[in-house]
């Protein structure tokens, strides 16, 4: 996202210099070529996803981007398959609850670690941060054993619980709360608000960009999560969209055209979320960069 900000001046400059003023120098041309190559690299998988979703099964392994006989048959098939809506709904529930939970808990913990002075504060922060260094693959086994013991296997709760609060979110929010001047907090304290009211009424509105950024990160992360939902779910009814889509096809063959169709449809909610919050996320990422 920072790239968006980074390229904005360049594109502006491009538009301004379209009038015959001064020929672009070699450095500028190289920069544009590099950005063009980066853009292509990012767009190609999405273009292939859409292209494959419009192909017949026999054409899937042809690398041509434009389908020879484009069809919407795959979309009809996927949308008529009741399982798709079930998985879609599961993903919506899990991503939404996890996002709300992260916004609440990460900001509360981040605020506490940032604005209160108490013994062990630094150690707690380091302990939370250090969990970022542990790869998810290592955590999957204890999560599974825990889910098994508590009876959370194959439940929404089982899929959600590891992500209800994240070290990254706590770190992000703590960094953002650093930008809220203590005077605001103290002024509210003098005005008679209790600490929870101060957090909610004064501090939270001031970190809206960070909350939006966190919301998008968490939503996208949970929307696209694959490994853990695959491990913790057994029944088709509990699958999330990525897990469910991977089951398209049969033992002999994978139905890539259907998977790509489902993937293309599943990007719609994330696009909507991103378009709504994008001005906040860009601001949020840039601010995090400046302050971090």
């Amino acid at each position: 996202m920072a790239i968006v900000e980074a390229i904005r001046p360049t594109t502006d400059a491009l538009m301004k210099t379209s009038a015959p003023k001064k020929p672009a120098n070699l450095g500028q041309i190289l920069r544009w070529l590099l950005l063009f190559a980066g853009g292509i690299a990012m767009i190609m998988p999405i273009a292939y996803m859409i292209s494959t979703s419009l192909k017949w099964p026999h054409e899937v392994y042809n690398v041509n981007l434009i389908p020879r006989e484009p069809t919407l048959e795959n979309y009809t098939y996927v949308l008529e398959d009741g399982r798709f809506y079930m998985w879609f709904w599961n993903s919506i529930i899990i991503a939404t609850i996890t996002t709300v939970s992260n916004i609440f808990f990460d900001s509360l913990v981040g605020y506490t670690l940032c604005k209160f002075r108490f013994p062990g504060r630094y150690i707690i922060f380091i302990a939370i941060l250090s969990t970022l260094m542990i790869p998810t693959e290592m955590l999957v086994i204890p999560w599974y054993l825990m889910s098994q013991q508590f009876g959370w296997l194959d439940t929404h709760w089982g899929i959600m619980f590891p992500g209800l609060m994240t070290a990254f979110g706590t770190f992000l929010m703590k960094q953002f709360f650093e930008t809220v001047p203590d005077d605001f907090i103290e002024a509210a304290r003098i005005d008679g608000l209790n600490e929870l009211q101060i957090w909610w009424t004064v501090a939270m509105p001031l970190v809206k960009p960070a909350l939006a950024a966190l919301a998008i990160f968490v939503f996208l992360g949970n929307w696209t999560a694959f490994i853990w939902p695959l491990i913790v779910t057994n029944s088709t009814e509990m699958y999330t969209l990525p897990v469910g889509l991977s089951t398209f096809g049969d033992e002999a063959d994978v139905a890539w055209e259907l998977i790509m169709t489902g993937a293309a449809i599943s990007t719609i909610p994330t696009l909507v979320v991103f378009l709504i919050f994008q001005r906040y996320i860009i601001q949020g990422v840039v601010m995090a960069g400046l302050k971090g």
């Binding site: 001047p181 005077d183 605001f184 103290e186 002024a187 304290r189 003098i190 005005d191 008679g192 608000l193 004064v202 509105p205 001031l206």
Partner: peptide
Amino acid sequence: PKERNIAMVFQNYAIY
């Protein structure tokens, strides 16, 4: 602070 019946004006105004 809220029980002291005081009000404070800060250097950077602290207006929300």
